[in-house]
Nucleic acid binder design. Structure first.
Lengths: 159, 159
DNA sequence: GGTTGAGTACTCGGATAGAAGTTGTCCGAGTCAGTCCGG
DNA sequence: CCGGACTGACTCGGACAACTTCTATCCGAGTACTCAACC
């Protein structure tokens, strides 16, 4: 199991966007995080498609949240970047081979599929319980209250 | 996020092995599940390397559990097939860019990494709480007690 | 001086190559069961 | 009839291609600002 690299970028970008008053361009975000601008733009497009951020073109354009950061969960960002489909995909193995079950007995997912689904639900709920605003707050606490101040200062200056 | 296809096969194979007295060969398991024998063998090798099953060569050889099925958790099987490394890999994004933190301030994982790790722990614990024996029991319940009987019968006959 | 128009620079968005991981397949090394021969 | 060695076939294990997905990049479409000319 491997999570796309863009998930980390997307989350950090969301934290950055939450600290800015106006829109933030992909180039600024890429410079701030030291990542390839073009590739980061691809993931930001995914956030835009998911309706988490709104993109505005033009010289002062960029990305901005469509709703308060406290209402954007980490799960929404992860699913926007990485896709909403579950990690475990049941291929209905019990319908194959000599002991294949008849289709009418396969309405209910098999126990293996249920066990994996339960685990993924737990994972999803853990991510749904954290918002982007929570992340920003924790990062700020880790830095004793300097990280978000420096971030806001950098976003405002050096345009 | 995508989980390897062999995870499903490995779990179903473990359930099958748990119902057999002697070793079960990869060819039998592949025939039973209707999957490519050579590729299934690859995943069974992973289970063998992880110490979950023990392989015995020779005409009556195959794979058998090294310990009771009740002591083999789903998590162990999943990690054996898919690898133990976590899905989210922190690339230390905060050490890059103009606002990079000094290395001595990076001892503690950042909030993003901690949030993802917490979710993965929840996922892992959910899988650790289910054993292969539990899976077999649930599959048997779903079939009103015929699945494991038929499976044992098939494994014993048609050699 | 105010207004209007074109020009320009900057933004996002999707279409396009390259790398990596997963999927699928093959053949060789090792081992046990059955068999054959000799006593 | 019994014991031992041999042949044979079956097993796993790792090495070898094909494909899908992820990673990275580029160029085109659209918009707001700037500046100059005109009224």
């Amino acid at each position: 199991m491997k999570l796309s690299n863009g998930v980390e970028w997307g989350l950090h970008c969301c934290v950055s966007i939450s600290q800015s008053d106006g829109p933030v361009s992909a180039a600024r975000l890429a410079e701030l995080h030291g990542v390839p601008p073009s590739y980061l733009a691809k993931h930001l497009q995914a956030l835009s498609r998911a309706g988490i951020v709104r993109s505005t073109p033009g010289p002062v354009g960029g990305y901005a949240f469509t709703r308060p950061a406290a209402e954007v969960s980490v799960l929404q960002v992860v699913q926007a970047v990485d896709g909403p489909e579950p990690a475990f995909r049941c291929t209905e193995i019990r319908r194959r081979g000599p002991l294949a079950l008849s289709p009418e007995r396969c309405e209910k997912p098999c126990a293996v599929s249920r066990a994996m689904a339960t685990a993924e639900t737990a994972w999803r709920e853990a991510l749904a319980g954290i918002s982007v605003a929570d992340l920003a707050g924790r990062i700020d606490q880790d830095s004793s209250g300097t990280a978000m101040r420096d971030l806001r200062s950098w976003l405002a200056g050096a345009p």
